[in-house]
Simulated scan of single mutants.
Amino acid sequence: MYNRARGWLASLDWTHYGIIASIYLIWRIGEGGGWSTACWMLLLICLLGVRTDQIDVDWKRFFVFGLPLLYLFYYFYGSGNSLWWNIANWMFENNRHPWTWDDAMNSIPLNNAAWMRIYNSPALDQAMVWVYNYGFVLSLWLCIVRSFWTRSIKKMLSYALSGHVLQFPLILPFYNLIMLREVWFVKGQRDLLGRVFTSENELLTNVMNCFPSMHTSISFAMLLLALREKDRIFKYMMVTYCSLIIISTMYLQIHWVLDVFAGMAFAYGTVKLADLLIRICSDRLPEWLKGYYNKKQKKKYPDTTMVA
C-alpha cells in the first residue's frame, strides 16, 4: 500500500499543480487589493521579460519554499492594514508628538510643491489619484510577484524586506515623534484624493504622518531594486511607475518636498539594511538546505543526440 501510494504521488505532475496554485494565490492577492484592470495589465507588462531574470532552479523544489513564502506575504498584507491603522489611532489618541512641523515646513519656499500643479486638469488629477491610491502596495506586489516567477527566494525576500516588512517598524519612531500634516490640510485647500472622513478624529489620524513620505520610500526602494534586474522592460516600467508615485504625492498636495527627499534617503538605507540581513542569513543557512534547493532537475529522458 505504501509503495503504491508513493508511486502514485511520484506520477503526479507537481510542477503543473504548483503553477495552478501560484496563479490562484496571485489572483487572491489582486482581489484582496481591489486591483483594477489597469493593475493587472501593469503586472502582465512587468512579466513579459521574466525569463531574462529566471535562475536555474527546479520548479518543484522552488514551489516548496516559494509558495509558502508568497502566502505568508499575502497573509500579512491582509492583516497589515488594520494593524497599521490601530497603531496610527494609538499614536493620535496618546498624542506622542513632541515636535510639530506644520508651520516650519509651510514657511520654506517651494516646499509645498505647488509648482507641481502649474499644469493640471481633471483627467490628470484622476490619473494621479489612481497612481497614488494603488502605489503604496501595488509597486511592492509587482516586484514580489515577478521575483516569484524568476524562481528566486532571495529576490522575494529582498523586495519584501526593503518594502513594508522593514519600513513599517523603522518609520514608526518618526511618525510617533513628528507631527506633520498633509500639504492640502495645512494650506486649507480641498483634499484632491476626495476622501470622506466620518469624524474629525479620523481626518486628523489620516493626515498627521508625513515625514518621511512612505509612499515615496516604498516606491523608491522598489525602483532601486528593479534597476538590478536584467530585463529592460521591467526596469523601464518600474522606473516610470515608481517615479509617477513619487510625483503624485506632490502633485496631489499631500507630501512636502522635504518629505519626498527624506523618503528617498530612508528607502536607500532600508535597501542596504535588507541586503545586509540577507547576506548574513544566507551565509548561515545549513548546507543540506542549500543543496536541496539548488539541486537541478533530473532529465526524464536520456540524451540521444548523435555525436559525430
Results as ranks from 00 to 15, higher is better:
residue 4 R to D: 15
residue 5 A to S: 13
residue 5 A to N: 07
residue 6 R to A: 13
residue 14 W to C: 06
residue 16 H to S: 05
residue 17 Y to K: 08
residue 17 Y to I: 10
residue 21 A to E: 03
residue 24 Y to I: 15
residue 26 I to H: 02
residue 30 G to S: 11
residue 32 G to L: 13
residue 35 W to N: 04
residue 42 L to A: 10
residue 42 L to P: 01
residue 45 I to F: 11
residue 45 I to Q: 01
residue 48 L to G: 01
residue 49 G to F: 01
residue 49 G to A: 07
residue 52 T to P: 00
residue 53 D to A: 04
residue 55 I to Y: 02
residue 56 D to P: 03
residue 61 R to W: 06
residue 61 R to H: 12
residue 64 V to W: 09
residue 64 V to Y: 04
residue 66 G to Y: 05
residue 68 P to V: 04
residue 72 L to W: 09
residue 75 Y to L: 15
residue 75 Y to V: 12
residue 83 L to F: 14
residue 84 W to M: 08
residue 95 N to K: 15
residue 97 H to P: 01
residue 99 W to Q: 10
residue 100 T to I: 13
residue 104 A to R: 07
residue 104 A to G: 00
residue 106 N to W: 04
residue 109 P to G: 06
residue 111 N to C: 14
residue 114 A to M: 07
residue 114 A to Y: 09
residue 117 R to P: 05
residue 118 I to W: 05
residue 120 N to C: 04
residue 122 P to T: 12
residue 124 L to T: 05
residue 127 A to D: 01
residue 129 V to L: 08
residue 129 V to F: 01
residue 129 V to T: 14
residue 132 Y to T: 13
residue 136 F to R: 04
residue 139 S to E: 07
residue 140 L to K: 04
residue 142 L to R: 02
residue 143 C to P: 00
residue 147 S to I: 01
residue 149 W to F: 15
residue 151 R to I: 02
residue 151 R to F: 08
residue 156 M to H: 03
residue 156 M to W: 05
residue 158 S to W: 14
residue 164 H to T: 11
residue 164 H to W: 15
residue 165 V to R: 02
residue 171 I to G: 05
residue 172 L to P: 00
residue 174 F to S: 12
residue 176 N to F: 04
residue 179 M to D: 09
residue 180 L to T: 05
residue 180 L to F: 00
residue 180 L to V: 06
residue 183 V to K: 13
residue 183 V to W: 05
residue 185 F to R: 06
residue 186 V to W: 01
residue 195 R to Q: 11
residue 196 V to S: 06
residue 196 V to T: 14
residue 197 F to N: 10
residue 197 F to H: 15
residue 202 E to R: 12
residue 204 L to E: 11
residue 206 N to Y: 12
residue 207 V to C: 08
residue 208 M to W: 03
residue 211 F to R: 08
residue 215 H to M: 06
residue 228 R to C: 07
residue 234 F to G: 01
residue 237 M to D: 00
residue 237 M to V: 02
residue 240 T to C: 14
residue 245 I to A: 02
residue 249 T to I: 08
residue 249 T to A: 13
residue 249 T to E: 13
residue 252 L to K: 08
residue 254 I to L: 15
residue 257 V to F: 14
residue 258 L to A: 14
residue 258 L to N: 08
residue 259 D to Q: 09
residue 265 A to V: 14
residue 266 F to H: 09
residue 270 T to L: 05
residue 272 K to W: 12
residue 279 R to Q: 12
residue 280 I to Q: 10
residue 284 R to M: 09
residue 287 E to Y: 02
residue 288 W to E: 07
residue 290 K to E: 11
residue 292 Y to F: 15
residue 293 Y to Q: 07
residue 294 N to S: 09
residue 295 K to T: 15
residue 297 Q to M: 13
residue 298 K to M: 14
residue 299 K to W: 06
residue 299 K to A: 11
residue 303 D to S: 05
residue 304 T to V: 13
